[in-house]
């Protein structure tokens, strides 16, 4: 209370009460203001309150029956909840109303109401620009304000930590599911997406592509040339696919494309043939050029078929090897009996 003059000159009852209870009101027997504490004065922009009716200054929220001077006696000793009729802020206050010591038998001299901001403290501090000096040293206002601000600081730190951890988690997952050479997804990512599509009964097409003559590139030009070719293949696949497709390198020169909603055999065949045609173009490498081709087996899965993922891969694999055996550079659709995809892999024979 260093800055509060009322506590420096404690002459008279008003000053003593104001120093002890900066948020108090003294009312006469009819509920009119006789004096008030300095901080409560701030709520009413320091305008003179003497003579104002308590009921004009405050809207009583509780107790319900406290509507006029005649009800003050019944409310004595009870907790009161008020809203200050001052500006648009509508600050909520709570407190206690007690009778002043009686002058004579049966005569009430008046009332003392001591108030506090309760949960509206941070609003009151911001609106009225209150300082440490506006609160009694017994008031826990400083601790509450400190705690509210400390809470914001700590929550902010925790929130930032959660964001950084989420970022790290996403990055770790990205790395765990990526093929570092080509930037395509890896087998793990492909398996998990295939499992999800099968589990959800989604319709999709799956292509299994294997490069032809890739071993010859490695043998002739070395592994750096082989890597260069694999990156080139990834580029061709990306150009041929849509945003939601999953492109994965699942082995040395083996690739899988998962195409949600794509079940049209002609469309799938078209995509595969265009990729093969592009891959047949010679790929420049240093002073020479690498020549490869590719074979593709594909399978389509209709909505609600919910097949065994291993079975889908096995059928695409079978189609791929049929394509290889038929002379390479070809596309073959999986050929299997109706409903065979629903059978577990072991029963397929």
């Amino acid at each position: 209370m260093d800055g509060d003059p009322i506590c420096r000159q404690l002459s008279g009852m008003d000053a003593v009460l104001g120093c002890l209870m900066p948020m108090h009101l003294v009312l006469d027997a009819a509920g009119r203001v006789l004096s008030q504490g300095p901080t409560l004065g701030r709520v009413f922009a320091d305008r003179p309150l003497a003579g104002c009716s308590f009921f004009d200054l405050f809207e009583v929220r509780n107790p319900r029956g406290l509507v006029g001077p005649a009800d003050l006696a019944a409310a004595a000793g009870q907790k009161v909840r008020l809203v200050a009729r001052a500006g648009d802020a509508a600050l909520r206050l709570r407190g206690l109303l007690v009778p002043m010591p009686q002058i004579g038998e049966g005569v009430v001299a008046g009332w003392i109401v001591n108030l506090s901001f309760g949960i509206d403290l941070p609003r009151a501090v911001a609106l009225l620009q209150l300082t440490d000096a506006d609160f009694a040293p017994t008031d826990l206002a400083m601790e509450l304000l400190y705690l509210a601000e400390a809470n914001v600081v700590v929550t902010g730190e925790l929130g930032a930590l959660a964001l950084r951890l989420e970022d790290a988690r996403r990055q770790a997952r990205e790395e765990a599911e990526s093929d570092t050479l080509t930037g395509l997804r890896n087998r793990r990512a492909c398996d998990s997406m295939l499992a999800r599509l099968c589990r959800e009964g989604a319709a999709f097409g799956l292509m299994h592509m294997d490069l032809d003559y890739f071993k010859a590139v490695n043998d002739t030009f070395g592994h750096a040339a082989g890597d260069h070719v694999l990156v080139h293949v990834a580029g061709v696949m990306k150009a041929a696919s849509r945003a939601g497709d999953c492109l994965a390198r699942v082995g040395g020169d083996e690739f899988v494309m998962l195409l949600p909603e794509m079940t049209d055999p002609l469309g799938l065949r078209g995509i595969a043939e265009r990729m093969i045609a592009q891959l047949k173009h010679p790929i420049p490498w240093q002073n020479g050029e690498c020549r490869i081709s590719a074979s593709v087996g594909f399978v389509t899965v209709g909505a609600e078929e919910m097949p065994d993922p291993a079975r889908v891969l096995a059928e695409a694999d079978a189609a791929l090897y049929a394509a290889k055996n038929a002379g390479r550079g070809r596309v073959m659709q999986a050929d299997y009996p109706t409903d065979a995809l629903k059978l577990p892999l072991a029963d397929a024979g």
């Binding site: 802020a89 509508a90 909520r92 609003r123 501090v125 911001a126 620009q129 209150l130 300082t131």
Partner: peptide
């Protein structure tokens, strides 16, 4: 005591 912005009212 207050950082400036008035917290939401009721």
């Amino acid at each position: 005591l207050s950082k400036g912005e008035v917290p939401y009212g009721w």
